[in-house]
Design a protein around this nucleic acid. Sequence first.
RNA 1: GCCGAGAUAGCUCAGUGGUAGAGCGCGGCCCUGAAAAGGCCGGCGUGGGGGGUCCGAUUCCCUCUCUCGGCA
Length: 301
Amino acid sequence: MVVFLVGPTGIGKTEVSVKLAKKIGGEIISCDSMQIYKDMNIITSAPRRALLKSVKHHLLGVVSPQKEWNVSAYRRLALKSVKEIFSRGRTPLFTGGTGLYLSSLVDGIFEERETLPGLRASLEALDGGILARRLAKVDPEASKKIHLHDKKRIVRALEVYESTGHPISALQKRRNGLADTHTVRIFCLSMDRNDLYARIDARVEKMFSLGLLKEAKSLLGRRLSRTARYAIGLRELKSYFKGEISLDSAKELIKRNSRRYAKRQLTWFRKDKRIIWVEAGRRDAPERIAGRIYSLLKDGD
RNA sequence: GCCGAGAUAGCUCAGUGGUAGAGCGCGGCCCUGAAAAGGCCGGCGUGGGGGGUCCGAUUCCCUCUCUCGGCA
């Protein structure tokens, strides 16, 4: 069995996951596109040392923020971790909030051959309308599905087509995930929206008191990958360091962007009907929430 | 106390004698190699209280309350 514990940012997954892992004899694999990076502990609210010690964690802080990274690379590492954990007779417990990472594991992702180097960059340089028309010609199905303005996905679809000679819409139908071969249980923590937003705001304040400014400054001095540089907090603080906005408004922006992110995560999780929702009251101790999940797991067997 | 300006969406504000918009905020949604990214959709409103004119008032008039300036 493979267990997933997901939920919006700031809801308290980390604590619950440790308690749950102990109950089920599990090891935690991070399912988070930002906590995978090194040197981004404060900005990603990565679990603190004490927690890491009590249960074995995988894929936290294992990639340089300067290295280009993506779902597929993540998936490869994650599946490797799953194998290792099984070989020890233990249970993998994925914890995190990155929806795409979750689906790449549960349902899989299509395997593509190498894309042509530099192709994406040269596509990106072109006008969106031209790209959209080009895609409509070579891959009408994908073109229909992708919004005209969603240049990122249009570029991706063209990149795949021009690299492989096959439309992405056809390739994407070929996917295999853990759900095809294993029993998969996905739990998502939920909370009253206002309570969640209050927690998010408080957590941003805490990040600042833990030294976010220093961490961000040092990160911004490096040549970050195009994934890592989009961590919430970095862009906002970059504007602050450049003197474009005040520290207060940077802080407010970080809070707002985190709230919006949480909202998008919830949208993503809501559409997956396999997810078992677990209400996390604002006064519920992590231990109690973990206990509830544990009993749901036993009932399901 | 007097003079002036104002009171419209969560906030800042626009506008019109035929029940109202904009930006931000907020809500909903999409998502298959950048995903904490990227994209789409939605006004969410007893127009400060009361009275009057009018077929009809958020818009005009009176009054009350409050806010902000200025003078005392």
